[in-house]
Amino acid sequence: MIDYLLRKLRARDEIADLEELALGRLAGEIRDYPADKTVIQEGEPLDFSSLLLEGMMCRYKDLRDGGRQISAIHVPGDFLDLHSFTLKRLDHNVMAMTRCKVVLVPHERLKAMTEEEPHLTRLFWFSTNLDAAMHREWELSLGRRSAIARVAHLFCELQARLEIVGLAEEAGYDFKFTQTEIAECVGLTSVHVNRVLRQLRERRLVEFRGGRVTMLDRAGLERIAEFRPAYLYLDRRPI
């Protein structure tokens, strides 16, 4: 059940067999959600964190006029809200973008883990630090990158993150988002995203069609995005 989490962590550090068992013991109730379902509301009290097992989810915030900003995308192996362990409620919503399966990890069990498993505790700390690093990179996109570079960067990031958990091939990956949802990630309108997607296709860099991202020229796409994967901390080192 925690295979994707293990792949994500083992890309960064060694996990001993006993630690793998300890991670397995964190798992509580399993929940399935349909696409487009908001699964955690801003402000609701939480006594568990959720680990994504299947599908894609996002963090988002809304304005009164209907404007929505997606601030992060989650792939299998990601905790949606490891930060709710210390915050006890969220300052954002969490939504299933596709059909999803999650496993709940009661905060009590996380607390016990912090007392018994210092190395796993550091890895979970790393994990929330990694979330923050990704938020910083998205800030750079929203504040400074051009429209085409924002979309290109999003595609590059997901390719790298999905590769870690074995859900992307060299050629690309499944990405069941609409243009409107991509627009909500990159702070553009769906009309504008549509035009950017055409530009990316015409330049033979990447194609997004039918819920699939197809890499045509990955190096070229990374160049236009100024994608520097260092912020994903993909190297293995003792934590």
Partner: peptide
């Protein structure tokens, strides 16, 4: 309304 927003977004860029 969506079209107008889209045009503004493209032209602003």
């Amino acid at each position: 309304e969506r079209a107008i927003e889209g045009i503004r977004s493209i032209v602003a860029e």
